[in-house]
Structure formats: structure tokens, C-alpha cells
Design a binder for these strands. Structure first.
Lengths: 329, 329
DNA sequence: TTATTAACCGCAAACATTTGCGGAAACGTT
DNA sequence: AACGTTTCCGCAAATGTTTGCGGTTAATAA
């Protein structure tokens, strides 16, 4: 069925090794022979058997990628950029989602090991405490680069968004508009990403505008964010600005705003940290600080390549973000 | 480094074949021996080398999946369901995106071939005319199942949404509300999906409510949909209902609606065909006909399994959709 | 005692590839 | 004529697994 070196060699009368070398342009082989081999190989549509090569070279040219969910604009762009790089460098990408479930994450990890991935990119679940399984991979010469959702451990490769500076960018923008009663809605307080963003946000107002009244609340999902706005807004001391920590929160807030028919930006300023799609779905478009999965992917990939090239230098990289102006401030 | 059968056999004193058979619970091996082998295998963390197995069995237990883009809620759920099935059946999934570019699609196809995938799921680009490369795979005993964006060719496995019945569901819902001036916005007229949905939509009104005035327009992107609404609405004969063929169109329409401050559903009824996320982002939530990528994934996977089991019966399957009630009618 | 049978295990080939090493021509040099 | 080089190529081992076939022991039956 499939053309192999053996078949080529048999029909040509050369040995397998000669055919192999000819196909790789080895100097030992005469141009004459090379041409014959090439011609037949093309004619018979020879394609080297990846598994034999993998077996021999012990290198799969495949990277694993484990993320909590694919359906998320941040991971989408992350995947897109990793995939692009991988394709350009002739690597494959084994994409797995954990569903934010540590058990499935474990199974995924096993699959990666089983597939003998060359390297692994991982965004861990919110409940992953023990990363020893990941560490084991690195001991097998398989670099692991944590992305976005990273463990607290030291001594691992980590790349995440510059959460504090993203929060600061948003705070700055709000300050410029001179808003004084800000409702700031953050996600799950347990997440390190939340902590970083919140601390930076608070700190900024403490030092630059202590007079601003900050109302900081937690919303673990869009519905909770929605409820916060619905409850806060009818009060006398209505907020004159809302800060959303993420797209998830923004969607809840926007539902409330539409229901209450609040005019943006006249009655209320709105800013969010976002992956860049949701803010464009509304009118007016929402001003946001962009967290680019695309950039992160590029950075992660180049980091992976240096790891494979032998660099064992552990880095904790941050991807900076950008203020994208809508008309909501 | 890695534990192999050979190492196990050497430290145990058994032959490689005995160890291999013991690990697979072969009846030829005594329970005593099996236990010894198992214990050592666990201790040394033996994991069979996938590539050696692939080489031997000529089966990668990997499916390829090529989609135009991952960042799309429909494909997200499709991927999620395929991934879930694959994991349960101990298959891996090689996910590739073509970026709706036939060139990249071709490269992806090559990668699949190179990785000797067991089967391929594919949603082709809008410009893919020649599917001979796909056909070639099937000739190599690699089933190809086309999903969602399928070629017009006969004699291939196709699974797509029941586009006409989805459109009819929406039309029905509009009819019940007795709307008489409907703006119906469809996507790129060239796509077969557009044609099917449009024809069914028109046909329904022709037979069930010929008095309804239908205004049918094309919008190739959200901006065009936005413009349509902006231009139509100030006219005397305002539409009293809008039908959107897809999420993409809905987002453009909603922007216009928010800008014009049109009250939904009082002034205007709105219905869309959607993958199920976007309609929930607005207040009131938009009523939609759901096209479930999840269902499609399940169906596709089971189809793939029967192909692998030997069924060569070519089918053109349709996934039916569901009306999900919001408050926009 | 010998033949039969079951239980248990190992040899070796096969899968497709890579590569160190060695060998045979062919040519040039002393 | 003897030796050294260069050019070109093949042998064979190695990667880790699976599996048909054959072989050894011990127990049972004749």
C-alpha cells in the first residue's frame, strides 16, 4: 500500500541505506543516483513514515497544549498563534481541554506523556495544586511552559499577562475622566489573577486619587455581576463608573445596563479588561485594556524553542497589554 | 531513561515476549509471572512506546480535525464534543485551523497524512473547490467526514445542520407573533448554507403567510448588517421584525438597535439562528434557533467509528435544531 | 512405561527508518 | 607495481513492540 524505503530500494536495485541517504541529499551519494531515487520517490509518492522516524529519533515533533477550555476568546487567539508558529516550524499541536477539571487534566497529561510530546504548554485548572506530574515531564527532557493560569511554584517556566499593569492602565483611564464613585467588579477572589489586578487597582487610586470612592465587589459569574449592578444602581449614591475585571463580568454588567437603560458614557463610564471581542459587540463600543493571547502565544513558543535549544534559564515572563479606546468612558 | 519491555525483561529474567504478554493479560502467562511483571512495571513506571506500537500496528489512534477557525462558538462546541468522545475512546485529536485559506488547508492535510491520522474530520474553507486531496486520504483507508462546511460533491460523508428546518423554525416563530414587515438579513449569498436557509425561509412565508412583507438583504459581515438596520429603520415602513441568519449578523444588528434605542420586543421583534452564546449577552435575551456543534460532534464521531468498523455506506446527515426562547419576540 | 495434553515461556521476524563502519572500485601518486 | 585517496555504496545494528510458532516441563491418561 504505502511506499517505503524498502520498496524504493527493491525497484531501483539500490540498498535501503543508499535510498535513504539519497533522499536526504547526503554527500556520499552521486548526483546520478540521487536523481534516480528522487524521480521514483516522486512517482511512487513516497512519504517517510513518521512513526518509524519518531521511534528512531525519539522525537515526536509535537507539542502538547492543555487549556481549561477552548471556547474562550483569549485561548482561541492563544491557540491560533501557537498553531501558526508550530506549523511554520513543522511541529504539530496536540490540543486538549481539561474543562477546568483536575482529573481530566491528569488524563490529558497522561495522553501527552503517552504521545511523547516534545514539549508542553499548559494553563492549569483553578484547582490544580499539585504540579508534580508536570514536573515529572520536565525531568524527562520535555519542557513545560505554563501559560496564563500558572502555578505559584517557583522554578517553572511561567508566562502570564501583566495583570497589575493592565489594571493600572484601566485605573489611569478612569482617573483621567475624573470619575469619583467607581464600582469595581472582580472575579473569584481566590484566583491569583484577581488578587494581582485588585491590588494594583486599589493601590493606584490610593496614591493618585485617594478621594475617589471605590466600591469593590466579587462576582464569580456573569449573573452575579448582573445582580451587583441591578442592586447598586437604584441607590442614591449611584456609581458614575464601573470597572470590570474580565469579559465574563462585562457581559453580566452590560445586561443590567441595557435593562436599566443607562446611557453610556453620559450617565456612566465603563471600562473592562478583555480579550478583545465582547467589547465590540455593544453600542457604544466598550473601552478596554486588551490582554492578547496572540502575543502570549508567540512569546511562549519562542521560549519553548530556547528551552529545546538547551536554555535552562527559568523565567517568569509577563505580557504587557494595551488600552483600546471605545466610546464608553 | 525510559522503561522499555527490554529493561523489564532483563531485570526480571523473562524474555521480552513474556513480559509483553504478561502486561496484556495473555492466557499463556501464569498468574505468578504476571504479578511479578506487573509489580516491576508499576515500580519502574513502564509506559509502552506509542510510536513503536503505531509502527507495528500501523494505526495512530489519532483523528485529524481541520476547521476554518477555532474561535467560533460553533466550532468550539464541536471541538469540545469531539475531544470528549476521543478521550473516552482513547483517541487523540490533532486540531488544525485553515484560517479559511485553501493553501493552509492543503498544508494541514499534508500534516494529517504525515501524521498518519486514523480518520479525518473536516470543515472546508469557503473557497475549497477541489477535494481530490481529501479523497486521496479515503483511498488510503482513512475515512474523511465533512462537517458543517461541506463540499457539494456526492459520494462523501457529510454532516451538516438542517439549515432549512432551522430557518423554518424561525419563520414559524415570527409568524406566530403575526409580524408583517420582516427584515431578513442573510450572509454571503454564495454559501450553500445561505441558500438553503433563505429558500426555506421564503418558502415558508409564501405558503403560510403570503401577506407578510419580506425584505431580504445580504450582509457579508457585522458592519454591513449594522448599516442595513441603520438605513432601513428611519424609513416610514419600518420593519416590525428582524431575522438574522447567524451570530455574526446579529452582532451588527444589535449594535444598530442599541444605537437607535429601539425597544425590544415592543417596537421590534428579533430572532436569529445562533450557536448559543451571543444571544445571551443582551437584554432582553434574544430568541434563537440553536445550531448545536455539540450534537454534530457526537454524530460525527459515531459516524467515524462505524466507518472504521467497515461501514462504507455514504450518508448525508443533518443535525436538527431547537428553538430557544428569549424575550425578543 | 509411554503417549497425550495442558501450561508456560522464548526465538525471531516484522514494522520503517537512521547511521557508524567498512568495503569496493577508480583514480592519481610515487 | 605498490600505495594512498576519493567516491560511492551496502551491511547490520538499533529504536520498542507484537505475535506466530515452536519448545520445554510436568501432569495425566493409556
Amino acid at each position: 500500500m504505502n511506499t517505503t524505503l524498502k520498496k524504493l530500494s527493491e525497484t531501483l536495485g539500490f540498498s535501503i541505506s543508499t535510498v535513504s541517504r539519497a533522499l536526504k541529499n547526503h554527500p556520499d551519494i552521486s548526483d546520478d543516483t540521487k536523481k534516480k531515487v528522487w524521480d521514483l520517490a516522486n512517482m511512487m509518492e513516497y512519504e517517510p513514515n513518521t512513526y518509524a522516524i519518531n521511534l528512531k529519533t525519539n522525537n515526536s515533533r509535537t507539542f502538547g497544549l492543555i487549556v481549561p477550555v477552548i471556547s474562550n476568546y483569549f485561548y482561541d487567539s492563544l491557540i491560533a498563534s501557537l498553531e501558526e508558529e508550530a506549523r511554520n516550524q513543522h511541529y504539530s499541536l496536540l490540543i486538549l481541554q481539561s474543562g477546568d477539571n483536575p482529573e481530566i487534566e491528569k488524563a490529558n497529561l497522561k495522553l501527552c506523556k503517552h504521545n511523547r510530546v516534545t514539549g508542553l504548554f499548559a494553563a492549569i485548572t483553578s484547582e490544580t495544586k499539585d504540579i508534580s506530574n508536570f514536573i515529572k515531564l520536565t525531568e524527562n527532557n520535555c519542557p513545560v511552559i505554563f501559560l496564563d493560569k500558572v502555578p505559584t511554584d517557583e522554578n517553572v517556566h511561567k508566562i502570564c499577562m501583566a495583570d497589575s499593569s493592565a489594571a493600572i492602565l484601566a485605573a489611569e483611564a478612569l482617573c483621567k475622566k475624573n470619575r469619583k464613585k467607581i464600582l469595581a467588579i472582580f472575579g473569584n477572589y481566590k484566583l491569583s489573577i484577581t488578587k494581582e489586578r485588585m491590588e494594583a487597582f486599589k493601590e493606584y487610586f490610593n496614591t493618585h486619587s485617594p478621594s475617589t470612592k471605590l466600591d469593590i465587589v466579587e462576582a464569580k459569574n456573569p449573573a452575579e455581576a448582573y445582580q451587583h449592578v441591578i442592586k447598586k444602581y437604584p441607590q442614591k449614591a449611584k456609581p458614575d463608573a464601573i470597572f470590570c475585571m474580565s469579559d465574563e463580568i462585562l457581559t453580566g454588567v452590560m445586561k443590567a445596563i441595557q435593562q436599566l437603560e443607562i446611557k453610556i458614557p453620559n450617565e456612566l463610564s465603563l471600562i473592562t479588561i478583555s480579550n478583545g471581542i465582547i467589547p465590540h459587540l455593544y453600542y457604544p463600543e466598550i473601552t478596554y485594556v486588551e490582554t492578547s493571547g496572540y502575543k502570549m502565544g508567540k512569546l511562549a513558543f519562542s521560549r519553548m524553542m530556547s528551552c529545546l535549544a538547551g536554555s535552562s534559564f527559568i523565567q517568569n515572563l509577563k505580557v504587557e497589554s494595551l488600552l483600546i479606546n471605545g466610546n464608553s468612558l
